[in-house]
């Protein structure tokens, strides 16, 4: 994890080395099935999710324990979001949205531990999430509404001349959705972690190290916010897209 060091008399930063995928066992090549640090940190995330939601709620207490009340808080938060944004008929997709939210939330927060790995900073990961939502929502839209789903692109209350132009813009924006959806998450997480690494590199210089350490602290605080907000943003956008699929008419 050495990202800084003196080479040729100057500081050399490797802020992106923290994102290198490494096999957990041995030094071999990374095949699609190789357990890697990505696997490890996703597994730790899964373990934390099980601890929080399954072990924490095993008492099924009417008066909840602390862990159980955190689980209930997250449950209530996402449930209300799904209900508010997509309406009553969107509630049956609540487990999917909850899965996305807790995965991103735990991946983001676990990534803030020193020496950890951040799966959500990888575009491959967020692209699977983003395109997964996009494809699922598009299929769902056509299954639920048939051809009427295309009404999403046809603004019936716009002037007749503008409608084709608006339709083109709507189609483009519709297809940009998964790209922005996934790059927003990966970009935020990756940028924050890279900036912390750069500050950490400067901390090796005696002269600026206090400033660098202050910088790390400040950026870390910001990243704590970003981790939660990005999970929230990803989830609420998923809800919005789901609402478009269920009720395409504007």
């Amino acid at each position: 994890m050495a990202t800084e060091g003196k080479e040729d008399g100057g500081l050399v930063f490797h802020p992106l080395d923290q994102f290198i995928v490494k096999p957990l066992f041995g030094d071999g090549p990374v095949a699609w099935y190789t357990p890697t640090n990505v696997t490890l940190w996703m597994g730790i995330g899964l373990l934390c999710i099980i601890l929080l939601f399954v072990v924490g709620s095993r008492g099924r207490a009417i008066v909840p324990t602390r862990v159980q009340s955190i689980g209930e808080l997250i449950y209530g938060f996402i449930y209300k979001m799904v209900e508010d944004v997509t309406g009553k008929d969107g509630v049956k997709y609540f487990p999917y949205i909850m899965t996305l939210f807790v995965f991103i939330l735990f991946a983001n927060y676990l990534a803030l531990l020193p020496m950890s790995y951040s799966p959500t900073s990888m575009i491959a990961v967020t692209a699977v999430l983003g395109f997964g939502v996009f494809i699922a929502v598009t299929i769902l839209g056509f299954v639920k509404n048939g051809a009427a789903f295309l009404g999403l692109f046809w603004m019936s209350d716009a002037p007749a001349i503008l409608r084709p132009i608006i339709a083109v813009i709507e189609v483009i924006s519709y297809f940009v959705r998964p790209v922005s959806h996934s790059i927003r998450l990966a970009g935020n997480i990756m940028a924050g972690h890279a900036v912390i690494k750069v500050f950490a590199g400067f901390a090796a210089l005696t002269l600026v190290s206090p400033v660098a350490i202050l910088g790390i602290t400040a950026i870390y605080g910001l990243e704590v916010l970003v981790a939660g907000i990005q999970a929230y943003v990803f989830t609420i956008l998923t809800c919005v897209y789901l609402k478009d699929a269920l009720h395409p008419s504007h």
Binding site: V38, I49, F53, V54, G71, F94, V128
Partner: peptide, 26 residues
């Protein structure tokens, strides 16, 4: 491919934990 494989595995695991155990219970 490695990330995609483990991600999908992880998501499926979370989905089953959530939809089968955690969410009905909570």
């Amino acid at each position: 491919p490695n990330q995609v494989f483990w991600l999908i595995l992880c998501l499926i695991a979370i989905y089953f934990v959530m939809s089968r155990i955690a969410l009905p219970r909570i």
